[in-house]
Simulated scan of single mutants.
Amino acid sequence: MQHNDMQSNTTQRCIYKNNTSPLCIQFLHDGCRKTVGLGISLARECWSAAAQKVADDCPDRDNIQFQITAKSKSTARKSSG
């Protein structure tokens, strides 16, 4: 039986000089944790840590959410195939 769990988050351990943090997706598959970077970074104000999603007032919200969804689907296909 496979168990897949997924969450998006900003890495709080890494904060760039321009006060942004890289956005990554963390997967849990069969007890193994895998972190996949999205290649984008967000200002801390643009991330809702409680909701684990891009904040509603983020200027580029739709594009960022699209990238999260696309990478999630792509990685989920790879892990199940």
Rank of each mutant, 00 (worst) to 15 (best):
H3R: 08
N4G: 10
D5Q: 15
D5F: 13
M6I: 13
M6H: 06
Q7Y: 11
Q7T: 08
Q7S: 12
N9T: 04
N9E: 01
T10A: 10
T10G: 06
T11E: 14
T11R: 15
T11W: 05
R13Y: 10
K17W: 07
K17A: 15
K17N: 14
K17L: 12
N19E: 13
S21V: 09
P22A: 00
P22F: 09
P22K: 03
L23I: 11
L23S: 04
C24E: 05
C24L: 14
I25W: 08
Q26D: 06
Q26C: 01
Q26I: 06
F27Q: 00
F27I: 01
F27T: 01
L28V: 08
H29C: 13
H29T: 04
D30N: 13
G31K: 02
G31Q: 11
G31Y: 04
C32P: 02
R33Q: 14
R33K: 10
R33A: 09
T35P: 09
T35H: 11
G37L: 05
G37N: 06
L38F: 07
L38I: 11
G39K: 03
I40N: 04
S41L: 05
S41T: 05
L42K: 06
L42P: 02
L42C: 09
L42Q: 00
A43S: 08
A43N: 10
R44K: 13
R44L: 07
E45C: 05
C46V: 04
W47G: 00
W47P: 00
S48H: 12
A50S: 08
Q52E: 14
Q52Y: 12
V54D: 02
A55R: 09
D56M: 14
D57L: 12
D57Q: 07
C58I: 00
C58D: 03
C58S: 08
P59V: 07
D60V: 11
R61H: 02
R61A: 05
Q65M: 07
F66S: 14
F66H: 15
I68A: 08
I68P: 11
I68Q: 08
I68T: 06
I68R: 07
I68G: 04
T69K: 09
T69L: 02
T69F: 04
T69S: 09
A70R: 00
S72V: 10
S72T: 05
S72N: 13
K73I: 06
K73L: 13
S74V: 09
S74D: 15
S74T: 14
T75L: 02
T75D: 01
T75R: 03
T75G: 00
R77Y: 13
K78Y: 06
S79C: 04
S80Y: 01
